[in-house]
Design a protein around this nucleic acid. Structure first.
Lengths: 247, 247
DNA sequence: CGCACATTTGATCCTGGTCAAAAGGCGTGG
DNA sequence: CCACGCCTTTTGACCAGGATCAAATGTGCG
């Protein structure tokens, strides 16, 4: 637990121009001059799988963007019950300007590399750059829409629909970034363990596992390996998730 | 259904200076000059209880703020299952700049009066006024935090905790606006029917009603009337909701 | 190869859903 | 002012989906 920070390391920085998430992150609206400024202020940090990037109680020192890897936002009750309230993929933003802390832990689900700015400095940038502020507002609104979609899943869907809904969400995000797959089907890598997955969709890990087995039995999915899922027919999956067909 | 708009009416406008939500709404960071501009561009509209203010499919023509009343954001599945994904109180913002539609219906839970701007015009204001943009970002972030809190309730809490959690949320919002009640207890008016309430906390209306009865039987709450709840001991309620004591 | 951990599968229990009926509130019209 | 009817809320009886407890199987790593 307390040795977690020993696992982290610092990467050599690259320039914003060659950043892989350049056109999707909070900085994507910036012009060359602004990017040059950012280049001088940013720093990278890498966290090992399982490491807690931010503790809910602790003061927020940096505002960051995920460059590579996957992180989860965990909200935990005192008796140990846990709900994952968000999953961060590359280009997603971490932290809240103007607030000294966030309401949930941020945990690395895989190895994660962040592009970080000191909080005060980033707040200064925000005040000076309408482009960054506008992009952050847009991203926050996207997160809000996603959270509300998830509320529907958590509050009203059956166990099978929840698992199918989770897979649908991953597929949609993958398609959004890589474009439509050539064939009708698709294969995706699960960024989360069964246990994390259960905490994300509001089930126990046993029920989650059972639903995977049944979806496999019913031919909705195939499991090439434990962390990969193949979906032969996307429309089918969306139907199982009680979602509209549109990608 | 289609006669709903016949119920709406238009109020005479008042100046922003005397607006009851002046210091909490999206315009609260504006100076006198900016307010004068807003005064000339805004319009009011009132909706009857039960009326749908915005349909999810329809194009968004205005961006608005709730001045009086309560509205709910409803996300509905094709088979009729419904989840309320947000409750709007006075000063809350409706709509999303830069998007042509919202992902949920907006329904008046009580009579609701909105302060509205035409979408294009408001987007122009946003581009010119960093104060409005900053405030909108802050409000959107608040909404996101609230949605994530609710995900924990929907995904991980028992029926009793959900009802207690709903009441706790109302109490906290009331205290935030009116300050701490003199005595230890508090009385709040429920803005939602049992059915809406059930759709908000992810239960059936029957289970919701049963939990109310049991919380009453156990002395956690009193029901002076069907739409009022008295909480003799707030700390007690928060404990039932599995939430930290802090207000 | 063996160990630790993740995942699957099985058996049983319990919370909350479903279907049904009774009770309580509220507005309208006689 | 009260009676009627409609709608909301409460209560009851029973059922089922998912949780819990437990054990077996699979997987990756030293």
């Amino acid at each position: 637990m307390s040795t977690a920070t020993a696992l982290s390391k610092t990467n050599p920085p690259v320039t914003c121009g060659e950043c892989p998430i350049r056109h999707r992150a909070v900085c994507s609206g910036c012009d060359q001059d602004e990017l040059a400024v950012l280049d001088g202020l940013k720093s990278y940090k890498t966290y090992a799988k399982g490491e807690t990037i931010i503790w809910a109680e602790n003061a927020l020192t940096h505002l960051s963007t995920v460059v590579t890897g996957v992180a989860s936002l965990n909200r935990t009750l005192e008796d140990g019950r846990c709900q994952i309230v968000g999953v961060l993929l590359p280009s997603d933003f971490i932290g809240r300007p103007g607030r000294s802390a966030v309401a949930h832990d941020v945990v690395a689900a895989t190895e994660v590399t962040l592009c970080r700015f000191e909080k005060k400095i980033f707040e200064g940038l925000l005040a000076k750059s309408p482009a960054i502020m506008a992009r952050l507002l847009s991203k926050t609104s996207d997160d809000l829409d996603a959270a509300r979609d998830w509320m529907l899943l958590l509050g009203r869907k059956s166990a099978r629909e929840k698992v199918a809904g989770f897979l649908s969400m991953l597929v949609r995000r993958a398609i959004q970034q890589n474009g439509m797959p050539a064939e009708d089907g698709a294969t995706i890598a699960l960024p989360l363990s069964r246990s994390d997955l259960a905490n994300y969709i509001g089930l126990t890990l046993e029920t989650t596992s059972r639903q995977f087995s049944q979806l496999k039995r019913d031919g909705v999915i195939t499991l090439p390996s434990q962390r990969d899922v193949h979906i032969p027919n996307l429309a089918n999956l969306f139907k199982e998730a009680a979602e509209p067909d549109r990608v």
